[in-house]
Design a protein around this nucleic acid. Structure first.
Lengths: 169, 169
DNA sequence: TTTTATTTTCAATAAATACTGAAAGTTTAA
DNA sequence: TTAAACTTTCAGTATTTATTGAAAATAAAA
């Protein structure tokens, strides 16, 4: 294995471990990493072989990355198989993963918090009022962060904005 | 169980599930939630009973929340036991959890990426140069986000800043 | 159509993670 | 110093999550 190949392997392993820490399936993270370090489009069989994972796992990982929108299918002339390439723009990954996780994981929680706040709105006990207030503060915080994130990412001016922040803060 | 108690229980369950999704142990998230909705300081035994968890689990969850700095010990007059209360400021949670996870999970990865970049610096192949560039872009992105987050949180002007962003973007 | 290539699904299994509970360790009080 | 109250540790067990692989489904070619 060449020096660069060893580095690539280490990147794949590291990326997989980071994903695990953050609730992203290790294989999913590794497939993304493999496609990122690969200079050509890879088929499911290529991925199975490179990462030593099953067809089912490879298929499900690719599907999830497609859902996130951070890998793409590439049609290869004269090939029946599907081939995949990775989105290279780090800002795009961040936006798409953040949006997807917000939609799947944060929004349902916010919906429940809203219900809990509504349910305790009329409560006149100290206990009820304190709970209502606390839930409201979580909602407010989440709304604000969410709005900021949307603006930073959607503007496609993330890097510019960060420089601005360094100046004004 | 009163209406407010039911709402509190639902909050605890929801918070635990959200934690799981994001790689935070369910019990840890639930203990934080329980302390948040509790109007008085709780002992380990109180927590064991309320959440139906073992002493070992309660102890380890409390320790982790103390490490994060999002719960505090409260000395109760005439009591030998330790009692705990939750930090109520949502911005403080976010800062402390983010800082802790950055230190424990992100920094080691950044260190490895730095090594990988160094290792491939001299590589003149197209393959090596592309890999070196990609790793550099991940590092650059992470540094920028990290710098921004530090500034937003450390300034304690998070909410003000978010309002400003809404205006300028 | 029929055959062959390829993708998808999902029940069974493996692996990783979380939790328990009792024993060891520590602190405070008698 | 001994005993009681309390906290911490960790080997064993339970639970959850991830992975496999073979069968079913789908799509393209013969």
């Amino acid at each position: 294995m060449s020096a660069v190949e060893q580095s690539k392997q280490k990147f794949i392993d590291t990326w997989g471990a980071l994903g695990s820490d953050w609730g992203i399936n290790k294989s999913v993270a590794q497939v993304q990493a493999l496609l990122l370090v690969s200079d050509k489009a890879l088929s499911t069989d290529d991925i199975m072989e490179a990462l030593k994972i099953s067809r089912g796992n490879a298929n499900m990982s690719l599907r999830q990355l497609m859902d996130y929108g951070i890998i793409y299918k590439k049609v290869m002339a004269g090939e029946r198989k599907e081939f995949f390439i990775a989105e290279k723009d780090v800002w795009k990954w961040a936006l798409r993963i953040a949006m997807m996780r917000k939609q799947k994981e944060i929004n349902p929680v916010l919906s429940i918090l809203k219900d809990l706040k509504d349910d305790t709105r009329g409560d006149k006990t100290t206990e009820g009022k304190a709970f209502n207030k606390m839930v409201g503060e979580i909602q407010s915080f989440t709304d604000q962060i969410s709005t900021m994130a949307d603006k930073v990412f959607e503007s496609n001016r993330g890097e510019l904005l960060l420089k601005l922040l360094k100046v004004i803060m």
